[in-house]
Design a protein around this nucleic acid. Structure first.
Length: 430
DNA sequence: TCTGGGGTCCTAGGACCC
DNA sequence: TCTGGGGTCCTAGGACCC
């Protein structure tokens, strides 16, 4: 590699194509080249499609109950989402990608921004081809790589790589002659950071694509969209405003929420659901070395209900905690505050807020009894966590979670945990 | 019957302080 | 009788992301 002075830094956005579907196809070769769709939690709607399913014009986000018949008729393989599989594959993917970049920011389960040094006026295609090839060989997953001067332009390049057949999954927006022609191909609603509301507003102003947004009057953007819009436009023009974030920022809140398999009306069921979510949330905090001092619970009816209701309640604690027993007590008490018998509740959740790192924790001097308590409970929690880690989360829980439930989520077509559960390793018959 | 879950950032407006 | 203005903190809600 040449010295830094003759090189410039470029940013690539690398993402896995149809990630969830690819993971399933990767552990089950029978699914290769077949139309496959993955459903959201609760088997609610379609959230991933293999290219074959895409070709059958099965829409992203469509509710399963509406699409079921057609999926059957077309012989599409339908799977519930298996997040432990996707999480595990994601870890493997990121570990490999790390070796081929200067810096890396894991942006989502299937995407990473990386920075790479570009030797003066050289193509980054050989680098990108190598990365794609390596990941395909190792994990059976196809990547798309978009390269730009900054994050927004890398995202745009990635879109172009997907839309232009001849690109073979790689597009470099830095070394391009007729840039305007390419920016015109990206309509405003497909720009990273432009959602539905903003897109509607831009359309009403006659701004239809990335080129027009780049050239739009800056003051008008700032007036409507504030600094967010300003940064976006500056990046479109080629300035660097959004840094690569290498170190994961500590979480500001942790949420566990689910829709119920069927609506509930009894306080007992609501309390039990919230208790189960609280157990999960507490373990999650401990795994990230965090404690919470504001605990919120919420519930609501379906978005589509003609008798709608939603309510939340929170409690601030004197001492921040990640102790499951303390949190359970709080959550059980709060559940009474949000319950109302007249409604069919379809979703509930808990939020752990005001998170602080255990290292820098401020203890209350008034409430020293509970500190005494926490020394014993810390080791209890540690024991529970390590047993659950060893035995696949099924070893120890609280009694309230074990009572029978008829509201729990639907996961009717789950694939086996081939990469995370030793019992589920595939048998290969040669 | 059945429509996901888990996050972040930003802004506006109220409360409060000096 | 006349009763300021700037700053900060907090919260709720909007918008967006994958």
């Amino acid at each position: 590699m040449k010295s830094k002075s003759s090189s410039t830094q470029s940013i690539a956005l690398i993402d896995a194509n149809n990630f969830y579907a690819s993971c399933e196809q990767s552990i089950n070769p029978h699914l290769r080249n077949k139309p496959v769709v993955i459903l959201s939690n609760n088997d609610g709607c379609v959230i991933a499609r293999s290219p074959e399913a895409r070709a059958l014009k099965i829409k992203m986000g469509i509710p399963y109950f509406k699409a079921k018949e057609r999926l059957n008729r077309l012989g599409v393989v339908v799977l519930s989402s298996n997040y432990s599989l996707y999480g595990d594959m994601s870890k493997r993917l990121m570990n490999l990608l790390k070796n081929y970049s200067e810096e890396m920011e894991i942006y989502s389960i299937d995407e990473a921004f990386v920075s790479i040094l570009r030797p003066k006026d050289k193509s980054l295609h050989p680098w990108a081809r190598k990365v794609r090839c390596l990941i395909y060989q190792s994990l059976g997953i196809t990547l798309t790589i978009g390269i730009g001067e900054n994050k927004v332009r890398a995202k745009i390049a990635n879109k172009l790589a997907k839309n232009i057949n001849s690109s073979a999954g790689i597009f470099d927006l830095v070394r391009i002659e007729n840039e305007n022609d390419y920016l015109r191909k990206i309509s405003v609603e497909n720009i990273w950071g432009i959602g539905k509301q903003t897109s509607n507003w831009l359309q009403s102003k006659g701004i239809k694509n990335a080129k027009e947004l780049r050239d739009m009057d800056q003051d008008e953007i700032i007036k409507k969209l504030g600094v967010v819009g300003k940064r976006l436009q500056l990046e479109l023009k080629g300035n660097k405003c959004l840094p690569i974030e290498i170190n994961k920022k500590p979480k500001k809140e942790i949420q566990v929420s689910r829709s119920f398999g069927k609506p509930i009306t009894k306080l007992e069921d609501l309390t039990q659901a919230l208790a189960i979510y609280a157990i999960k949330a507490s373990a999650k905090m401990r795994s990230q070395n965090l404690k919470s001092s504001t605990i919120t619970v919420f519930t609501r009816t379906s978005h589509y209900s003609n008798n709608p209701y939603q309510k939340s309640a929170h409690k601030k604690l004197i001492n921040a905690t990640n102790n499951t027993s303390t949190i359970l007590k709080t959550v059980v008490a709060l559940s009474k505050e949000i319950y109302s018998p007249e409604y069919k509740l379809s979703k509930a959740g808990v939020l752990m807020q005001d998170l602080t790192n255990c290292k820098y924790l401020q203890q209350s001097i008034i409430n020293y009894e509970s500190q005494e308590d926490s020394i014993k409970s810390i080791s209890l929690m540690k024991t529970i966590d390590s047993l659950n880690k060893k035995f696949n989360n099924k070893a120890i829980t609280w009694a309230i979670a074990k009572k029978p439930q008829d509201w729990t989520m639907n996961r009717n077509s789950l694939s086996p945990g081939s990469t995370t559960d030793i019992k589920k390793i595939p048998n290969i018959i040669v």
